[in-house]
Amino acid sequence: MFARFSLMTTQVPGDALVSLKAVNKHYGQLHVLKDINLNVRKGEVVVVIGPSGSGKSTLCRAINRLETIDDGKIAIDGKELPEEGKELAKLRADVGMVFQSFNLFAHKTILENVTLGPIKVKGVPKAQADKDAMALLERVGVGHQAPKLPAQLSGGQQQRVAIARALAMKPKVMLFDEPTSALDPEMINEVLDVMIQLAKEGMTMIVVTHEMGFARKAADRVVFMADGQIVEDATPEEFFTNPQSNRAKDFLSKLLTH
């Protein structure tokens, strides 16, 4: 657990499972990612927080190239993200992604949602994929929903299926892009519990969220973004009790007073 206390400068890039170097991105005039440097080690849980429009979702989506970047380097497990095509597809299979709006395949059953990737991308035999998928669905607590269609499930259940779908690919790292932001309050915990469990089991995770409770409980590091920049990168303890920048102090004070 040395990772918890190391500073950014001491991180060895070769050691990083996910590494971003001098990443820049513009949307037209808007500079959404400004010279982003970030290394995430194997087994590390990094929570990215910040005001909306700070570029945290873009950052998350750039890591599996759902967003292209203008310049800089992004590498997963030492391999730089390739251009669109076969190689990129292969690399994406190693990076699990959970979206704010779940994005379960609307025309497929819950079970098929989870088995489709293993069967079509990895060539796992259907019987084996079904078995693995059922185990995953049980693990996230929606095993009994397997034959239903996504629209028949609650938001919290759908998001847990989405996590199972990503896990079915046995990813090296999981990206969560505001996984609880579209959920009713009473459903947030059932999703967070699954994520906390996952973190405990040693999954490498990058989580964009507004859930400070999750950040405190499960994060090894908190990355605070504002205006497209990484403003702070600290342990949750340091960040929440002793934020360095005014931007972070301002952000936290707004959270605490409501």
């Binding site: 095509g85 597809a89 299979a93 190693d94 690919m169």
Partner: peptide, 13 residues
Amino acid sequence: GQAEAARSIGMKF
């Protein structure tokens, strides 16, 4: 989002 989810589990175009 349907296409993004499909791409993110490694499907080709």
